[in-house]
Amino acid sequence: MTNVTRLHHALPLGPAINKAVTDLDSAIAKAIDAAKAAGLPQGLIVSLLHGHAHAETAKMVGA
């Protein structure tokens, strides 16, 4: 896992990273709100997010 950066070791974070994190968080929150408004069950939303988290973790660890 030499390609993994631990953000707490890189503090303080630069403005570009802070903006990317804020933008990502905002986009996720908007997508969740849209999914709820469309009537998706909360469990489905959670399971989709959990699945993506697992997939990204597998990519990060396996790469």
Score class of each variant (00 low, 15 high):
63 A>T: 07
10 A>G: 08
46 V>G: 04
5 T>D: 12
58 A>H: 06
35 A>W: 00
21 V>W: 01
15 P>G: 09
33 D>Y: 04
49 L>V: 03
3 N>C: 10
60 M>L: 15
25 D>Q: 14
36 K>H: 05
22 T>K: 10
4 V>P: 01
42 Q>H: 08
51 G>Q: 00
15 P>T: 07
41 P>S: 11
2 T>V: 12
50 H>R: 14
53 A>N: 13
40 L>Y: 06
48 L>Y: 02
56 E>S: 14
21 V>P: 02
54 H>G: 08
40 L>V: 07
12 P>Y: 00
56 E>D: 15
8 H>M: 14
27 A>N: 11
8 H>V: 13
26 S>D: 12
40 L>E: 14
13 L>D: 03
20 A>E: 09
47 S>F: 05
14 G>Y: 00
24 L>C: 13
38 A>Q: 07
19 K>L: 13
5 T>R: 12
15 P>A: 14
16 A>I: 06
32 I>L: 08
44 L>D: 15
52 H>D: 15
47 S>H: 09
41 P>V: 03
45 I>Y: 00
27 A>Q: 14
50 H>D: 13
21 V>K: 07
15 P>R: 10
44 L>C: 11
47 S>I: 05
16 A>D: 12
32 I>G: 00
1 M>N: 06
4 V>S: 07
47 S>M: 13
8 H>Q: 15
43 G>P: 00
32 I>M: 05
43 G>D: 05
2 T>Y: 07
25 D>C: 09
61 V>N: 04
22 T>S: 11
28 I>N: 06
14 G>W: 00
43 G>C: 02
56 E>C: 11
60 M>N: 10
27 A>T: 09
63 A>F: 05
19 K>R: 12
4 V>D: 06
25 D>E: 13
38 A>F: 01
45 I>H: 00
27 A>W: 02
62 G>N: 13
3 N>P: 02
23 D>Q: 08
15 P>V: 08
4 V>E: 09
45 I>C: 02
17 I>E: 09
10 A>P: 02
58 A>G: 05
10 A>L: 09
32 I>V: 14
14 G>F: 00
42 Q>Y: 03
3 N>V: 06
45 I>E: 01
1 M>I: 06
32 I>N: 01
53 A>R: 14
60 M>T: 08
11 L>V: 07
32 I>K: 02
51 G>E: 01
34 A>N: 09
6 R>S: 10
60 M>Y: 04
14 G>K: 04
56 E>Q: 12
34 A>D: 10
18 N>Y: 01
35 A>V: 01
55 A>M: 11
43 G>E: 05
14 G>T: 05
42 Q>R: 11
50 H>K: 13
58 A>M: 07
20 A>V: 04
24 L>N: 10
9 H>S: 13
33 D>E: 15
59 K>M: 10
23 D>A: 05
49 L>P: 00
56 E>R: 10
43 G>Y: 00
